[in-house]
Design a protein around this nucleic acid. Sequence first.
DNA 1: CCTACCGATCGGTAGG
DNA 2: CCTACCGATCGGTAGG
Lengths: 170, 170
Amino acid sequence: MRDLASAVGMEAASLYNHIKSKEEILFEICFSIADVYTKNILSVHQSNDVPTKKLEQLITLHLQINSNSSSLASVMNDEWRHLSSPDRKKFLDLRHDYENKFIEVLNEGIKKGEFKKLNPRIALFTILSSMRWLLHWYYANWEFDDREIKKDLKNMIFDGILVHNNSVHV
Amino acid sequence: MRDLASAVGMEAASLYNHIKSKEEILFEICFSIADVYTKNILSVHQSNDVPTKKLEQLITLHLQINSNSSSLASVMNDEWRHLSSPDRKKFLDLRHDYENKFIEVLNEGIKKGEFKKLNPRIALFTILSSMRWLLHWYYANWEFDDREIKKDLKNMIFDGILVHNNSVHV
DNA sequence: CCTACCGATCGGTAGG
DNA sequence: CCTACCGATCGGTAGG
């Protein structure tokens, strides 16, 4: 709180005229980002697009949040565990809902023969995890082209690293 | 330190008969795991295998460490930043060496036409990141088959999620 | 918005 | 290996 206060040019005690507690800040961050995910998966879920298109929209969403709101997203990702009793459960429920809807997209794609017959939960975690490095400051030192990252990441998730003769994304 | 002490059935003060400081524990964890990575990439680097084979060996290494030593590996991954001045730099140097050798493998594969023409640093971070979810307790609730995880993960890294007619890994 | 201060907790030491 | 205790730091409150 001392750090936050000095970052906005006041004493720690003065922060409490604007916020109720440290955890309130965490709450705001976690649920504002979770809201974006929830709204987006609902609209993807309701669309009539083909599974590959749905997956592409979800990946685009994650790439956007992870690069445009990386600090908020990394707080959400790493610190949600420190929410206390009722909020923590509420957050986990939102997350599980999101994951389940994402898995439905994967299952639909497998059934239609667009996606490989992978364990959908393993595929889910692997896809989300593969984009998570964008959140860490460690990599901020290497200057990347944002469009190149998005292109290469989509390419790898859809088609992997090996060269295929008839791949549509190469 | 109170938690660690009670986990081994003693008082916090008594720990200091066995260790010098809290940071010494962190040091041991970080550098013992880093050592495994360093030794392995050297032997892969010196082999005459084809890049695809080299990459497969590196992925196998990460999968093994991330699932067999997940708690040590997650401490190393998340807490190395808290090493103090000379050790922190030493650790980062090891890490950069590792990453550079990994990138050489990727570049070799691109040059030989085995791997797609991706930005090798983006590819590196994406590959390593995609396996990182194995480190988080959150997923421990879902009971997975270890061999299924390894199979699906390799499949996704090499060939992606889309179905290809002539993919060798499907 | 600040000064002054609180109780709890932390890594660690002294001394046995 | 324990009791007793230290200085620093943390989230937060009182009172102006």
